[in-house]
């Protein structure tokens, strides 16, 4: 039994088909990178799994259709970092991170006694937000806000992390830190990651598997090295992806680094 099994997933808005019969599965220990050009339907897959959009087909988590999971149960198992998080009110960083523990406490009266404070502290420390803990979220930069919601996700502590463009707004230091952090997180038993990325280098460096989409359909699924083979990428992106990547990296020569 797979941890997550998606079968014939289709999403449409009226006559517009966003996804058509997409199928894939995720096993524990895997980091599945969903890649493809703009408008391929990558984010919609994550939104379907988190029940944010109506879909047809089946999505089964731990052998049970996700439609049959209670919201709180599902949040203990699957967590999503969205691409766009805009703030309307001046919640502090800590208040936002604290919301990540919602699913762990049964009600407003019972509270979450099992390590809530430790989980919050750890999540804030992992994302380097200690200094911003009591700061209003309205004054944060895009990267700081992204890290705040990532901390919320760590406080939520699900088994399956879904990340939609996790490096959005992050500078290089935090890109590296966040990806290494997630790779380390993944080493614990029974965990898996599904993330949407545009940066194919990051996909190849950190992903174990990949799902290549184009115009809402699956082009390839499997180990990341196979899915990112030149022929497939060139076909989907309509350009010579490997040459472009080499050209980009040729800008960073050893002579430059020694000066």
């Amino acid at each position: 039994m797979s941890m997550l099994e998606v079968k014939d997933l289709s999403v449409s808005y009226g006559d517009l088909h966003i996804l058509r019969d997409v199928s894939f599965s995720v096993e524990p220990g895997q980091w599945l990178m969903i890649i493809g050009p703009n408008g391929a339907g990558k984010t919609t897959i994550l939104n379907s799994i988190s029940r944010g959009v109506p879909y047809t087909g089946t999505i089964v988590y731990q052998g049970r259709d996700i439609r049959r999971w209670k919201p709180r149960e599902l949040a203990l198992n699957i967590g999503l970092l969205s691409q766009n998080n805009s703030m309307g009110y001046a919640f502090t960083v800590e208040e936002i991170v604290r919301l990540g523990r919602y699913a762990h406490s049964a009600s407003v009266l019972s509270g979450d006694k099992d390590g809530r404070e430790e989980a919050i502290d750890r999540a804030i420390a992992l994302t380097g937000l200690e200094g911003l803990r009591n700061q209003s979220s309205l004054t944060l930069s895009g990267g700081e806000l992204q890290r705040t919601f990532l901390a919320q996700l760590f406080a939520q502590d699900p088994r399956l992390l879904m990340l939609d463009e996790p490096t959005n707004h992050l500078d290089l230091v935090y890109q590296k830190q966040v990806f290494n952090l997630i790779r380390e997180w993944l080493t614990e038993n029974g965990r898996a990651v599904v993330s949407v990325v545009h940066d194919l280098s990051l996909a190849r460096a950190y992903g174990t598997h990949a799902l290549l989409l184009s115009k809402g359909r699956t082009v390839a699924e499997g180990p990341v090295s196979e899915v990112t083979a030149p022929k497939l990428l060139n076909e989907v992106y309509s350009m010579d992806v490997y040459s472009w990547m080499r050209e980009m990296y040729s800008q960073w020569t050893d002579e430059d680094s020694s000066t």
Binding site: R72, E73, A75, G79, L80, S82, N85, L99, Y102
Partner: peptide, 8 residues
Amino acid sequence: NARNIGVN
């Protein structure tokens, strides 16, 4: 965000 953290 409410849906993602488990709010019905």
